[in-house]
Simulated scan of single mutants.
Amino acid sequence: MDRKKINPTLKLVLEMGPIVVFFVAYLKLREKLFVIGGTEYEGFILVTAGFIPLMILSSAILYKLTGHLSKMQVATLVLVVIFGGLSVWLNDDRFFKMKPTMIYLLFAGALGVGLLRGQSYLKYVMEEMLPLQDEGWLVLTRRLTAFFFILAVLNELIWRTQTTDTWVYFKTFGLSAAIFVFFMTQGKVFQTYAIPEDHPAEAEDL
């Protein structure tokens, strides 16, 4: 299926909507207990249970509208289903809290494998958004690999040592802000290794 362009606002809603809903629902249900089938569930577990189908639905709509999901989006969805499902099934919030750790370790590992082969897998994901020379992609990939590993370690430290409230705020705002800041601080790389607009042939070769 060919990729299709959709309204950027709609795309943002589909990508970030489930996270926003998760956060709002958690704030409303975090102090409540629910008895289902004779078993007590905290609000966090019920919110997680609702987050899983919401992620599946938003991803399906995004794929239907664009004809494409990135490998990162697919990997994230799979891990949400696996670790979120384990948390609900076992009534244990630790599995869902581990999810960001697994996601960032997976991304760091995948990018690291590419670097060992002298390639930038990041280029295949973001080439349309950031036209860079090959050397620039390698520089950015090395930095992002280290950054993902740091985020994985940080997530482990937060959920293991802090309250669930702190972790939810960290996951909702902290991780997103950290990624935004990371790319904002890479301006020198983008400037140094940008492909000149008057060299279309070079851009096609990369």
Results as ranks from 00 to 15, higher is better:
3 R>M: 13
5 K>A: 13
6 I>Q: 10
14 L>H: 14
17 G>S: 15
20 V>K: 13
21 V>T: 15
23 F>Q: 10
24 V>C: 12
24 V>W: 08
25 A>W: 03
26 Y>S: 04
27 L>G: 05
29 L>Y: 07
35 V>M: 05
37 G>C: 07
40 E>I: 10
42 E>M: 04
42 E>V: 00
46 L>H: 01
48 T>K: 00
50 G>N: 00
50 G>T: 03
50 G>Y: 01
50 G>W: 02
51 F>Y: 06
51 F>D: 00
58 S>T: 15
59 S>T: 15
60 A>K: 13
60 A>T: 14
61 I>T: 03
64 K>C: 10
67 G>W: 10
69 L>A: 12
73 Q>F: 09
75 A>M: 15
81 V>P: 04
83 F>P: 00
92 D>K: 13
92 D>M: 14
94 R>Q: 12
96 F>S: 08
100 P>A: 13
101 T>Y: 11
101 T>L: 10
105 L>I: 12
105 L>N: 05
106 L>S: 12
107 F>Q: 02
111 L>Y: 00
113 V>L: 10
114 G>N: 02
115 L>K: 01
115 L>Q: 02
117 R>C: 01
121 Y>D: 08
124 Y>T: 11
127 E>P: 06
128 E>D: 15
128 E>W: 08
129 M>L: 15
130 L>T: 11
130 L>G: 02
131 P>D: 11
132 L>E: 00
133 Q>I: 04
141 T>E: 07
144 L>S: 08
145 T>A: 07
145 T>P: 08
148 F>R: 07
148 F>N: 10
149 F>K: 09
153 V>Q: 04
153 V>T: 08
157 L>V: 10
158 I>L: 00
162 Q>E: 09
162 Q>D: 05
163 T>Q: 11
164 T>C: 12
166 T>E: 05
168 V>I: 14
169 Y>W: 12
170 F>E: 05
171 K>Y: 09
171 K>G: 08
172 T>H: 05
173 F>A: 06
173 F>V: 07
174 G>F: 04
179 I>V: 12
179 I>D: 02
181 V>L: 07
182 F>Y: 01
185 T>P: 03
191 Q>G: 00
191 Q>C: 05
192 T>R: 08
193 Y>K: 01
198 D>C: 08
199 H>K: 09
199 H>E: 14
199 H>R: 13
201 A>Y: 14
201 A>D: 14
201 A>G: 13
202 E>C: 05
202 E>Y: 12
204 E>P: 06
204 E>Y: 12
205 D>L: 13
